[in-house]
Design a protein around this nucleic acid. Structure first.
Lengths: 330, 330
DNA sequence: CTGAAAGCGCTTACAG
DNA sequence: CTGAAAGCGCTTACAG
């Protein structure tokens, strides 16, 4: 282990002032500096393997070149993919990512947020869990620029957000089921007050009502921590109603419970058409045709970072991205 | 946006010195300080909503309360799960996680590593990609404590590591296939020079040789960026050899390619027993029985953080964790 | 062309 | 019980 060299060390060795070393190494006032002294300084810096102390730099400049990212659950592919690509985008701009996973716990979220504010990150990218929407004052107050991802909060003022157009995505699901000649459809969604999830079901229900008639549209809701049991009951109910021939799983977690339970109980796709939100990879192991609502994750990551660094005021507040529906296992 | 209050602001308002404010707010020299002044200072701090400047603290203390985590690919469940739990463990100890995903690119890895060293993280947790094993000098040189996860580098000196006992895990796979009455087995692995992956195949081959005889053990290797095509050829080859009745996929990525291709081509599990490494969730959608090698991800995360903060010298250098084999979809 | 000095916001040994 | 001062490693306006 070698002691880190400081500007002072270089200055001493070169017999010049610290200021001069700083100028040379940062390429400032460069035309006014004697080329030979400059070169000598650079050589000594190399020799001592000088690396600037970022902390000292931050203290002066009030910039940390760090962005704080808080996701709802990093072990979910949706967020881990996004996290990776946000990190990459940030890197490209010389930033690093301080990262936290709130696991949908508002208390944990707020603690993480406070830590990131305290550490003076230069920007925040946030997927906010249910029950944490009282955090906005703190964010605004901190003066740190931010972008919300995935989840929008239209009743909390004008917050810069990039997310899926969930209403539209679900309309597409209804259309898809219609185009597959379904006549009676059901959806299974998470019980949640998150606006984007409500929009997601609303889009499905409203569009399905038009296509199939209200009496042929059913929504089931499940509570996250009783997923397995609830889904089991629901699936039985759906299968009992022989008429239902179209099914939408509104999150990938739900799909992971529903799909195994459907195996061997119903002919897919002949008697039941299925559309699922998100998580494309795993579905490849499902032995039947199904359709998947793909969110543009890469775009979302990229756009989030872009918006974070773009402080033009006349920017649209919520940026909606469009989903695509893909057939799998054909 | 409110201006951040500093110790100076509090000192001014309270008509005391900055030092005194610092003592009070940090609970130092606390018995020597006038209780009333102390209270007055605390009140003013509250009122001003004082939050210490962590950067200034770091500059003095040389501690950043940050640990750097570089994983091979964050969008892989294996690492995203680990990342989440390392973050949680770190939080519990008052640390935050600066995060990077190297996507198996040694150049990118080394760049990330350098950034983390420059930012003076207090610890490093690293999953090192192939071809980056010349990074150890830099790490040792930096004096930052580190723990390697998942991948061990026995030829690079004594490096603190926590990883699976891969040889043993693969022996278990062979045993499992034996216990399922297989007579001829094949394995599909990634072509890689990473020691832990070599151990993984070695354990399988050596143990299988004992059980089944060399002529009944075959190893296939695939190159990562030709996965789909290679697997397709291999699967055809395996199916053509009617004798093979046991198959091991050595990474979850391989399994995701192999399993769909097996559907409807062979009776599972009657004619073909399958064991796969990692990623348990997705396999639930596979319509047949199969066995899964589970790595103790939570333990690995926890142990990594523990080791990072444990600087007892007589610590074992490599900590091996044990895999378990689970039957799924029974 | 180069340097002395102030300052970023904190901590802490020392003096009184 | 409290404060003046030095210092962490840097930057930068100013002076010469």
């Amino acid at each position: 282990m070698r002691k880190k060299a400081s500007l002072k060390d270089i200055a001493n060795k070169a017999n010049v002032s610290i200021a001069l070393v700083s100028y040379v190494l940062n390429g400032k006032n460069t035309k006014k500096i004697n080329v030979e002294t400059a070169n000598r300084i650079k050589e000594i810096a190399d020799e001592l393997q000088y690396r600037p102390n970022q902390i000292a730099k931050s203290l002066k400049s009030n910039k940390t070149y760090t962005i704080g990212l808080i996701v709802a659950d990093i072990s979910n592919f949706f967020y881990s993919y996004i996290a990776g690509h946000i990190e990459e985008e940030a890197n490209n701009r010389g930033y690093n990512v301080l990262f936290g996973s709130a696991y949908e716990d508002p208390k944990r979220f707020k603690k993480l947020l406070q830590v990131m504010i305290d550490r003076q990150v230069d920007g925040l990218i946030l997927a906010i869990p249910e029950g944490a929407d009282d955090c906005f004052d703190d964010i605004i107050d901190s003066g740190i620029s931010y972008v919300l991802i995935d989840r929008e909060f239209p009743f909390c003022g004008s917050l810069k957000t990039v997310c899926l157009d969930n209403y539209n995505a679900s309309s597409l699901v209804a259309e898809k089921l219609k185009s597959l000649n379904c006549t009676s459809v059901a959806g299974i969604a998470l019980q949640s007050n998150l606006y984007h999830l409500k929009e997601r079901t609303r889009g499905f229900v409203e569009t399905s009502n038009l296509f199939f008639g209200e009496q042929n549209v059913q929504m089931y809701r499940v509570i996250e921590d009783q997923l397995a049991e609830s889904v089991s009951t629901i699936v039985k109910d759906i299968l009992a109603q022989k008429s239902i021939d179209g099914l939408c799983c509104f999150t990938n977690k739900i799909a992971m419970e529903v799909l195994p339970q459907l195996l061997n109980k119903v002919e897919i796709p002949q008697d039941m058409r299925i559309v699922c939100f998100d998580e494309v990879e795993a579905f490849r192991l499902f032995p039947h045709k199904l359709s998947v609502v793909k969110q543009p994750l890469y775009e979302m990551s990229k756009k989030a970072v872009e918006l974070l660094f773009d402080d033009s005021k006349n920017d649209k507040v919520v940026h909606y991205l469009n989903a695509t529906i893909t057939d799998m296992n054909t």
